[in-house]
Structures are given as C-alpha cells and as structure tokens.
Amino acid sequence: MFGTMKRGVSAYANVDLETGIASASPHKLIVMLYDGALVALRTAKTNMVAGNIPTKGAAISKAITIIDNGLRVSLDKEAGGTIAENLDALYDYMSRRLFEANLRNDVTILDEVHGLLADLREAWAAIGDKVQHAPAAATAAMPKTPSLVGA
C-alpha cells in the first residue's frame, strides 16, 4: 500500500518538475540546476555521515553530473568571455573536489563545494529580475539553455 502511494507522489513530483522546466526561462533553469546540485550535496553529506556509502556515492555522482552536464555545458564562452572561462574552471574544480570527497569520505570537501555553489546560486538568483527586464542586447551574454539530460 505505502509503496503505491510513494510511487504516486514521486510521479506527481516528476510531472511538477517537468512542467517547471518546460515553462522556465534559461535564467530560471540555471537556478534550478544550482538547486538540484545543492540538494544532491545535502543528501551526500547526510548519507556520508550515516555511513550509507552507495547512496552517498549516487548523490555525489548526481551533483557532478549537474555541474558538468548542466552548468558547464550551459556556458556560452564566446558571449561570456572571461567570466564564462572562470566559471568553467570553477565548475571543473568543484567536480574534481567532489570526486576526491567521495574517495576520502571527506565532509569538509562537500561543505566547501556546497558553499561555492550556494554563493553562485545566490548571485545568479539576485540578477534574475534584472535579466527578465533587460533589453535583448544585454541578455546576449546569458548562458545557452542548459541540457538537463542525466540531471
């Protein structure tokens, strides 16, 4: 009985997420990617502390996938110039650190990456209203619409 209810709730959550993605602006999609990575890191930390190695590993892998296949892929290095190049290097650093955190079972590394992502998410969210009301020329440097495949 409970398994059926849980599957129904999960299906509803997936529909809600898919609807949100379909109707979101490119800017909002980036915020959603940050949110997904942050949730994955909180899950990883909880499971690392609890000694649940498989779930910890899966959560870290999910965070790395979001960073590499969502955030990094969405960078437009031509339009974004130095900022996009620096973000690319930072995302690469975060992915490598998460790999290390997984190998060493190091909560401090998870906290480090979580802090970096939270700061970036906060900055990105803060410019959200400005981007939505900006003229087309000012939004040319925005990232491409990210691919959420595998996220």
Rank of each mutant, 00 (worst) to 15 (best):
S95L: 09
A59M: 11
L17K: 13
F99E: 12
I109Y: 08
E85C: 14
T55V: 13
A84H: 08
Y93K: 09
P54K: 06
A126G: 12
V31T: 06
L29P: 01
V31N: 01
K56H: 03
M32I: 06
L33E: 04
T19E: 10
V107A: 14
P26C: 05
T108F: 12
F99V: 12
M94W: 09
V113G: 04
G36F: 06
S61L: 14
N47Y: 05
S147T: 00
H114T: 06
L98V: 07
L148K: 07
P26R: 03
I21D: 09
K62S: 00
G70M: 02
L38H: 01
T4R: 13
F2M: 10
E122F: 00
R104N: 15
G57S: 13
A134P: 07
A79E: 10
I64K: 06
L17H: 15
E18F: 14
N105M: 11
P146V: 00
L87D: 02
D68H: 11
A63N: 02
T145K: 14
D76P: 10
D35C: 06
D68P: 03
I21K: 14
I30L: 08
A140P: 04
H133T: 05
I60L: 05
D111R: 07
L87H: 02
S10I: 05
N105W: 03
M5H: 08
G128W: 13
G20I: 06
G57Y: 02
A125D: 15
E112Y: 11
L38D: 00
G70T: 01
V15I: 13
E100D: 11
N14Q: 15
N102Y: 10
T43L: 03
I109N: 08
K45A: 11
G150Y: 07
V131T: 08
K28W: 01
D129V: 06
T108M: 07
V113L: 10
V31K: 00
E122D: 15
H133C: 01
K130I: 05
A22M: 10
L41M: 09
A118E: 13
